[in-house]
Design a protein around this nucleic acid. Structure first.
Lengths: 353, 353
DNA sequence: TTGTACGCGTTATCAA
DNA sequence: TTGATAACGCGTACAA
């Protein structure tokens, strides 16, 4: 078991200086053709590769992006990671992942671990608990230390950083309009509590659509779920709440759900109650996942384009990292971008065509 | 925008030496109470944190684990990551993720990038293309360089490393036995081509179960899918192949699928053909995903325990990393472990109780 | 054409 | 009690 070989060892072996080896390997014209060949052959033989850590220390950059997300077992987030990884690798960066598990503390700890030199910048989506507590000091701190952040999906406006979001309001509005156009008269929304920014925005879109069509929203048609991490217990509760919604609003003929799980659960409950889909109940959900596509009936969805979001976020971050290199003017008011990814409606079986 | 503060800067500011600062911060008794306090106060004020990269360089270990998986948009793999991350963090490690996208080249490149000092060891599941080509030199090379690997799920025996697998043969056998016990007379299997190790093993389990019950396997009941990455095209093809299976074997009353997608697709096709589930067709699938749980009917599955696999893999790797520290006896024949995670059958609606 | 010296941020050892 | 120095691995400006 031989350890990885270093410049020093090559130098010793070939009885030249370290810098000669270094230069030879980088094809410097300072070095004679002869020694260059000798060194390169030897290096190839021993499969020499420069040590990343040493380079990071020297260059004061790691070429690594830190990702902090609430959970990874979630199609949206894993698609985002796919997107990030794709452009990161293409542009010579690695990706290191931390999971907050929706917890404020874990988010803070994870960020601290990574911020101490392990990475050049963050791409993150905020934990629910953090959104609830509205304590964002860890974001401002890392930004103040010169480490850029790009937020996606769950963002807060007061933090000065680049952001990538989908137009939740618009996407929701379009979905609800589709339901209205399809003849739904009593459209319910299954959303999350308002502290989850996307839940709030999608609810807003729902209300906007109703208003545009002169439909008075009814409080009883608006269900806001306390969206903890999904346990089986919680799932039971979800079903009960949805059943309650149907029971007390017998005339519901349209459901707009802010995520896939709510939608399939609603369909399950609706069927149990004897509703046919899409004949007597039409359903649209925000989503990017597999459930929509493969469950029966398949779900009409507002696509969130997770991978695209990831790609965009990675490009924003890397652009900023690489512009910093040349731009030493720290005192300019930095201008941050918010990129809005367009959603679009993917029609499947849960709505009438 | 202040950069992260370093020992050197603190030293200069307080007009002491770097080593004094270092010691003071680590509460060395060598340093007077007085200066210790002074230094610590200053450090806290400026939120000093030791630079990870410098520590990595010095300690010759990074306290990070490299994960290489074929894709992340896949519940099994993301559960595994969750498990790895869980114990890694608990034991003071970070996790860096590379995606092979089922490609041999990307697998090799990703491993090279990370093996150059960025990580202490790998946890990985082999890309399909690699399995097909049977070219494993990149694994042996990294192992020879003293970097331990733990493989999970898709493993190859010839590589000397720790492994975590589920007992695919046994899990499959149990599933098929359940179908037999439930009265199925004509059980088909939907599997992958044999170069995917798990596909092969699960097919073996299927055959074992039949044999144990004196049922002669029929070639026409064994469908082996060319399992490329899932595109929409591919999905169409999958449906056609499955439809073909049903058409040429009208008496099929049981399906064992090696993954969730095959199972739900089979159900979809079966329904189109007028079969009722579970009355005239019972289905069991290997899986750890959401489709099983939330589709209608929900699927009876052989649970793979992805998170547990991840936890086990992380523990194996970290144990090895930390035993290496004390154990300088490189010449002992190293003994590698293969941990088998027990599967279990989760009964849902796609089988008779 | 080659080698020396320095610095990236830390810690450990040894000297003062 | 404090400080100087070396080392981790690399690249580069400068000296030989």
């Amino acid at each position: 078991m031989k350890r990885k070989i270093t410049l020093k060892q090559i130098a010793k072996e070939l009885d030249v200086s370290i810098s000669t080896v270094s230069k030879a390997l980088r094809n410097s014209i300072e070095i004679s053709e002869d020694t260059r060949q000798k060194v390169q052959a030897f290096a190839k033989l021993y499969n020499y590769r420069p040590n990343n850590i040493a380079l990071s220390l020297k260059n004061r950059k790691t070429k690594t992006i830190g990702i902090i997300i609430p959970e990874i077992v979630h199609h949206f987030f894993s698609k985002v990671i796919t997107g990030i990884e794709l452009v990161a690798n293409k542009r010579g960066y690695n990706v290191i992942v931390g999971l907050s598990n929706e917890s404020f503390d874990k988010e803070v700890i994870n960020m601290q671990m990574l911020a101490n030199g392990s990475i050049d910048g963050f791409i993150l989506s905020i934990a629910k608990e953090t959104l609830q507590q509205q304590d964002y000091h860890h974001f401002t701190e890392t930004i103040n230390q010169g480490m850029p952040i790009v937020m996606f999906d769950r963002v807060v406006n007061e933090i000065p950083c680049d952001k990538v979001i989908v137009d939740d309001v618009k996407g929701a509005k379009q979905a609800v309009e589709k339901l209205i156009k399809n003849g739904c008269k009593n459209i319910a929304i299954i959303s999350t509590k308002d502290y989850v920014s996307v839940g709030k925005l999608r609810t807003q879109g729902y209300l906007d659509a109703l208003e545009d069509h002169k439909i008075t929203p009814k409080a009883s048609l608006i269900l806001k779920i306390e969206d903890k991490l999904m346990s089986d217990d919680h799932l039971d509760k979800l079903e009960k709440e949805i059943e309650q919604l149907f029971q007390s609003n017998k005339s519901i003929d349209g459901i707009f759900a802010v995520n896939e799980l709510y939608a399939v659960t609603a369909i399950k409950v609706a069927r149990k109650l004897g509703l046919e889909i899409p004949k007597s109940l039409q359903v649209i959900s925000f989503s990017d996942g597999v459930l929509s596509k493969h469950s029966t009936p398949s779900l009409t969805t507002v696509s969130q384009h997770g991978q695209e979001i990831g790609e965009e976020a990675a490009n924003l971050l890397i652009n900023r990292l690489e512009s910093e290199e040349t731009d030493y003017n720290d005192e300019t008011d930095e201008v941050y971008e918010t990129v809005v990814i367009e959603t679009n409606l993917i029609e499947r079986e849960s709505t009438k065509n």
